[in-house]
């Protein structure tokens, strides 16, 4: 599989752009002077360094024939992202146990070979264990069910 040159340069270019953006951010803070460097001084220098190393990455990528990465497991990424997102958004409103079940359910939807029975069993164990350890043991301000 041949990769277009643009794709192989993308990581380095991203770093250069990130460096530029961070540098622009640093300019909004007081720079101070070399006698008394202000809060913007160090980040500005680092941003410059980041752009320089990004340039190095670009140059290196141009010269090499890197093997293309194996096909990406988009399903895995999407499943993990959505399940964590759902847990974070809901746990304070619907409680620890429903949020845990929701996380398991979303993971299962993205899984090719799902075994609902064993998943349900695992989810139940984790719900019980987590309630005992985190809610009762460590006293986290979360409810097992419902808002805190």
């Amino acid at each position: 599989m041949a990769r277009s040159p643009a794709t192989s340069l993308l990581p380095g270019i991203t770093i250069i752009l990130a460096g530029a953006a961070i540098g622009a951010g640093a300019l909004t803070y007081p720079l101070g002077s070399v006698f008394r460097p202000g809060p913007g001084f160090f980040p500005l220098g680092l941003a410059g360094l980041l752009m320089a190393t990004g340039l190095g990455v670009v140059i290196e990528a141009r010269g090499s024939d890197a093997a293309p990465p194996e096909p990406f497991a988009w399903g895995a990424l999407a499943g993990v992202v959505l399940s964590i997102l759902a847990f974070g958004l809901t746990v304070e409103h619907i409680g620890y146990i429903p949020a845990t079940l929701l996380l398991f359910a979303i993971c299962a939807v993205f899984e090719r070979f799902r075994d609902w029975k064993r998943l349900a069993l695992t989810a139940a164990i984790i719900s019980a264990l987590g309630t005992a350890v985190f809610l009762w043991g460590l006293g986290l301000p979360l409810a097992a069910f419902g808002g805190a």
Binding site: V80, I84, V91, L103, C107, A108, R114, D115, G130
Partner: peptide
């Protein structure tokens, strides 16, 4: 596939 959702729950509660 049974292990990783459990780890994810612990990650979330752990950082929380």
């Amino acid at each position: 596939n049974l292990l990783y959702p459990a780890i994810l729950v612990f990650v979330c509660v752990g950082v929380y």
